[in-house]
Nucleic acid binder design. Structure first.
Length: 214
DNA sequence: CTCCCGATAT
DNA sequence: ATATCAGGAG
C-alpha cells in the first residue's frame, strides 16, 4: 500500500480541525518553553493545570534560577518525572541568564544547547513562539500517525523529521504537527484507532488493520 | 539501552 | 493490571 499524499492529508485534516493549535497555555516564550519541558510523557491538560499556578509564582528566568530545587519539584510534581524536569527547568533558566540575558534564544543551535531542551522542544518553541519553521515537530502523536499514513517507516524521531521535511511545505510545518496531534488524540489513537470514522480512511495504508500498532 | 514518574483511560 | 501521555539525559 502506498503512502498518503501529504497535501491531501493537510487539506482534509484542516477541514476536520479548523482550530488546531497548541493546547498548552502560555503568554510568552519562557512560559511556552517551561510548558513544553513539563509536557514530556504527560497530557497537555495536566500541564495546564500545573502551569496555571506555576506561572503566577515564577515570572522570569531569575525566579526559576533562584528557587530552592525541592520547592520547584513540588510545584511541578503532578506532571511526573518531576526531579528531572525541575533540574532541567532550573538549569535551563540559569543558562538563559548566563548566555542570553534571561531571554529565550531564537535559533535551533542555541535552544538545543539548553539543559532539558531537545529537538522536539526546540521545534515547538521556534514554530509557535517565533514563527520559525525550519523543522518539523515530531512527538509521540506525529510519530505514530506519520508511520500509519506511510509518510515514514522509521521509528527514530530525527529520521522521521528528515523524511517529513521535504514532504511538508515550510509555511505549513507548524500547522501540520498540530493537525496530526489533534487527529492522533481524537481518531488515530495509540490504543484503539477509529479507522471507520477517519477522514483519511481511503488514502491510509493502515486503514482496515484498525488496531495494528505503528 | 535504561532511567525518570504521576495521572488517566481501557 | 497495563498502556499511554506535545521527551531528554546518561
Amino acid at each position: 500500500m502506498s503512502a498518503a499524499p501529504v497535501g491531501e492529508v493537510i487539506a482534509r485534516l484542516k477541514r476536520e480541525y479548523p482550530d488546531a493549535k497548541t493546547a498548552l497555555n502560555w503568554s510568552n516564550p519562557l512560559e511556552l518553553l517551561v510548558a513544553v519541558i513539563l509536557s514530556a510523557q504527560c497530557t497537555d491538560e495536566r500541564v495546564n493545570r500545573v502551569t496555571e499556578r506555576l506561572f503566577r509564582k515564577y515570572r522570569t528566568a531569575e525566579d526559576y534560577a533562584s528557587a530552592p530545587l525541592e520547592e520547584l519539584e513540588q510545584d511541578i510534581r503532578p506532571t511526573g518525572f518531576y526531579r528531572n524536569k525541575a533540574r532541567a527547568i532550573q538549569g535551563m533558566a540559569r543558562a538563559l541568564l548566563e548566555r542570553h540575558g534571561g531571554e529565550v534564544p531564537k535559533t535551533m543551535e542555541e535552544l538545543v544547547a539548553l539543559p532539558g531542551v531537545g529537538r522536539k522542544t526546540a521545534n515547538v518553541v521556534l514554530g509557535n513562539a517565533f514563527g520559525v519553521n525550519e523543522g518539523v515537530v515530531v512527538d509521540t502523536h506525529v510519530r505514530r500517525v506519520s508511520r500509519r499514513l506511510g509518510l515514514t517507516s522509521s521509528d527514530d524521531p530525527e529520521k522521521i523529521e528528515r523524511d517529513l521535511l521535504p514532504q511538508v511545505p515550510e509555511e505549513e510545518r507548524t500547522l501540520f504537527a498540530h493537525l496530526l496531534i489533534f487527529h492522533g488524540r481524537r481518531v488515530c489513537k495509540a490504543r484503539r484507532p477509529d479507522c471507520p470514522g477517519c477522514v483519511l480512511n481511503d488514502i491510509c495504508p493502515s486503514s482496515g488493520l484498525s488496531g495494528k500498532p505503528s
